[in-house]
């Protein structure tokens, strides 16, 4: 099964739409709720990252019986130093993002913790791609 969702930069009202839909699909597939929670927390943090930092983005979801693959790609400023961005507490988020309850430098670390495999690539001035892969059975 494949799904895709658009994410608008700066539009916090819609952040979480993709994660909400993916959660419903995984519930229908009777995936263990603990595994669902890991997947949707990681995806939700990814959506918030696109809303917080990029101009626009796409979430591409591919589910097969054994695993879910999520590709979050955006057009945005990119990440100059990915190792630094992965550090808990490092953040470049604006005051507006912090008012929304995010921007404390925990997004990428939360995503890493909740995915079996995470792959991040980024070009400064162009955008970022984060790929998350997680097994659907424990």
């Amino acid at each position: 099964m494949k799904f895709s969702y658009e994410v608008e930069g700066g539009n916090f009202a819609k952040a979480g739409n993709a994660a909400s839909n993916v959660k419903k699909v995984l519930k229908q597939l009777n995936v263990d709720p603990k595994i669902i929670k890991r997947i949707v927390v990681a995806l939700y943090e990814g959506e918030v990252n696109v809303v917080a930092h990029a101009y626009k983005g796409m979430v591409l979801v591919d589910i097969d019986p054994s695993r879910i693959h999520i590709r979050i790609e955006d057009e945005g400023p990119g990440i100059p130093d990915i190792d630094l961005a992965m550090q808990v507490g490092y953040s470049t988020a604006s005051a507006m993002v912090r008012e929304m309850g995010f921007g404390a430098g925990m997004g990428l670390p939360n995503m890493k913790r909740n995915a079996d495999v995470i792959d991040i690539s980024s070009k400064v001035g162009e955008g970022t791609v984060v790929e998350l892969t997680t097994k659907l059975t424990s």
Binding site: A13, A19, S20, K37, V41, Y44, V48, M100, G101, F102
Partner: peptide, 15 residues
């Protein structure tokens, strides 16, 4: 004390 859509979405994702 955070009253916006993200609070409700966070609750949804975190069960």
């Amino acid at each position: 004390g955070l009253t916006n859509m993200q609070t409700v979405r966070t609750a949804e994702m975190a069960d």
